[in-house]
Design a protein around this nucleic acid. Structure first.
Lengths: 348, 348
DNA sequence: CTGAAAGCGCTTACAG
DNA sequence: CTGAAAGCGCTTACAG
């Protein structure tokens, strides 16, 4: 690892210089009222003078606590997750915790490795935004059962009914997609596709269910040819736009898996001579910053990822404080933000 | 902080169970050839059985080393910095280091506080992508002179000629902006604006210089009315597009401070009835993922932030290994990636 | 209000 | 090849 640098100033140095014991200095550090005001002042001045820096790792070792939380993110280049990470870090920092970052780049193998390495720092807990198709048993093997875990956004695949316990924070995908679809129905659309995402991911499955709920509620049959699968990225969504028009009656609207997909689809539509926001309606999911400044601005479901990050940190810290808490699954409602990408149906 | 959970398995537990000493187990852990193959096997099996997890913090304390590097980022919601962070984490992880994340949200006050808190974990080094207008003396106060520092992307403001030493990794802003401007000149443009960014940031200043270099090289006077300042965000850039057309002869091209600004400007141009890529040329800086799928795809300068992240980690680790290294300033060339946003000048 | 001693979980010489 | 002892920088009872 690293070579050692000039010897650090320790409690001993301060104690010796002030002619008091280490214990006294330690009490000063933690603001104990037991120590005399004069002594406190002398000690504090000496720390200042010598440039003393507290060694929290040593304190944690002695106290058998941890002031670190591990945060493992599947895809930092997606602003939704980057914002989430920023929110987690903000809330943890406010509570005196430090964030140990790890990124899996959507690879379960890398995720396992990253978790293993972070575990050696004995974090007080783990916040995991899992790679696609992460297996619960796999995660358990990496982190054991004694470190509190909060899973964000995607359900883990549970093959073995283990006693592996963790909290979950996710979005109300089903209700969100249903709301978006219902709005399109109210605007007169009858040909509505569900566009993008991997059908085997839990969030995509749930959003598709919400879409189907709404269609069925309006007495419209679900047409599997209008359920189009793509990787959940802008580029892939752009590339497959023509799949919407492969069959005779073309849809006039698409509920998209997420904003990245919706923005990509809008580009693809333009390429095909369609005009999203004029003769075609598109909705997204997430409300990333680009959604508001897209062409046209995108109607989408707001999940406020930064707030979700803060919430994830809260939930995890509650559990570290009370390990006996029953397992929780918090599903956050998402709100429809209407912008110009959803015109009335052409015929209406 | 956190409460303690069920007692952890330690080296002692393994040693006792195997009937060997702690030292022997420690040697096994670090793969020493001194220990007998049979003993090694027995010890390893026992660790597996008991679910032993190495406590790196304890080892680091004893060895007086650190296996953590602090990474402080000004703006995680900008994909350029998020990618940079991912690159740093990737390279540090590969070398056995863990990343301590902090985010300043462009606030120097928050940055100081975050640095102070991270210092208590005695990182082996710090990688700082500073908040705008960060003061070198301020940073020095927060981290002292014994922890290696690598500053990324923006120069620190140096008021006092301190002996405060740090490495720097940045982009060749001047040459990059010059290249972009020269390309526009070659395409026949004569009315070329410099659009966006805060003029008091070092990167903006340097990019403006490159723009001026190119104009002067072509015998064109720099018109201060065509140097337009905006916050470096998509939204602000969008909002101020009309500033380009406030005076009589309008430019036919704009060299933008960065991609976010360029993408925002293109939206603003569309709003004003202009057609970027047809009757107006726009260049960006950074080549964020959206640049390639913009409308039209954006000509820009590629800085490969993920690779810069890996490079930053390398540079920092070199310094932790050899503190006596002279101060380094690495300026990375950026390459022009030409796409459809830069048509010939209308008249040409 | 302050000090002497023990201990958190490791590693490091030093013997054998 | 293995063990006993000391120590990294803190905190925690326990005396006084």
């Amino acid at each position: 690892m690293a070579l050692d640098r000039p010897r650090r100033i320790t409690l001993n140095d301060i104690a010796r210089a002030c002619g008091v014991s280490r214990a006294t200095v330690s009490l000063v550090l933690r603001g104990s009222p037991l120590v005399h005001a004069d002594t406190r002042r002398r000690v504090e001045a000496e720390m200042q003078r010598q440039g003393y820096v507290y060694n929290r790792a040593a304190a944690n070792l002695r106290q058998r606590v941890s002031s670190a939380v591990a945060l493992v993110i599947n895809d930092l280049s997606n602003p939704f997750f980057a914002e989430f990470a920023a929110g987690v870090d903000e809330a943890l920092g406010a509570k005196g915790y430090v964030t140990l970052l790890g990124s899996s780049n959507e690879s379960p193998a890398r995720q396992r490795q990253v978790l293993g390495s972070l575990m050696e720092h004995h974090p007080a807990g783990i916040i995991l935004s899992p790679a696609e198709a992460s297996d619960a048993a796999d995660i358990e093997l990496a982190i054991g059962r004694n470190t509190p875990l909060l899973v964000f956004n995607r359900q883990l695949v549970e093959n073995q009914a283990a006693g592996f316990d963790y909290d979950f924070l996710g979005l109300d995908n089903r209700a969100g997609a249903r709301t978006a679809t219902e709005r399109l129905l109210a605007l007169g659309h009858r040909g509505i596709a569900f566009y993008g995402g991997h059908a085997d991911s839990s969030s995509c499955r749930e959003r598709r269910l919400g879409y189907e709920d709404a269609l069925r509620g309006a007495g419209i049959a679900v047409d599997p040819r209008w359920m189009i699968e793509t990787a959940p990225t802008r580029i892939e969504a752009n590339a497959h736009a023509d799949a919407l028009f492969a069959d005779a009656p073309a849809p006039t609207a698409a509920v998209c898996y997420n904003d990245a997909v919706a923005l990509g689809l809008m580009l693809g539509l333009a390429r095909l001579g369609r005009h999203p926001g004029v003769d075609f309606a598109v909705t997204g999911f997430d409300d990333i910053p680009e959604a508001a400044v897209g062409i046209p601005p995108l109607t989408t479901l707001n999940a406020d990822p930064r707030a979700r990050g803060r919430q994830a940190a809260e939930l995890l810290l509650q559990r570290t404080a009370t390990p006996s808490l029953p397992r929780r699954s918090v599903i956050v409602p998402v709100l429809l933000t209407e912008r110009e990408s959803t015109p009335h149906a052409p015929s209406a």
